[in-house]
Design a protein around this nucleic acid. Structure first.
Length: 113
DNA sequence: AACATGACGTCGC
DNA sequence: AGCGACGCCATGT
């Protein structure tokens, strides 16, 4: 776990890119996976910067802890996020992920952390 | 160089 | 049980 401040965002991007198709995760889970205990926020901030990240990060698979598509408005177009999720097999209802708890992908577990 | 902004989550009252 | 405030990092102007 040798992370420099600059690598912090990079770590987040890598984890997000590892999210399997048809699965979703939460900001808090990623924050915990990288050790950012104080900052689910930091993950959100990183996601904003993800727009400049290369390669592009599948941020549409990242939602808040309740499965709400908080960042959908940041997509292009915003509805693209829900379409992508539904296209991958994730049912989105009212900007929320159906069976979010069931489709939840825990990086701390899947990445054997 | 400093200020402002931006995709959350947890604790306390 | 509902609402408010606090904590954190990076980037752009």
């Amino acid at each position: 776990m040798a992370e420099n401040k600059e690598d912090l965002y990079e770590l987040i991007y890598q984890i997000v890119r590892k999210i399997p198709k048809g699965r979703v995760t939460s900001y808090g889970a990623i924050a915990a996976a990288i050790g950012a205990k104080s900052g689910a926020r930091v993950v959100g901030y990183a996601m904003f910067s993800a727009g400049s990240a290369k390669p592009k990060v599948p941020a549409h698979r990242v939602v808040n802890r309740i499965g709400l598509l908080t960042g959908k408005h940041h997509f292009n177009p915003p509805s693209k996020m829900q379409e992508l999720l539904e296209k991958e097999g994730v049912t989105v209802k009212d900007d929320k992920v159906a069976d979010f708890k069931t489709r939840f992908w825990d990086p701390a577990v899947e990445l054997s952390m």
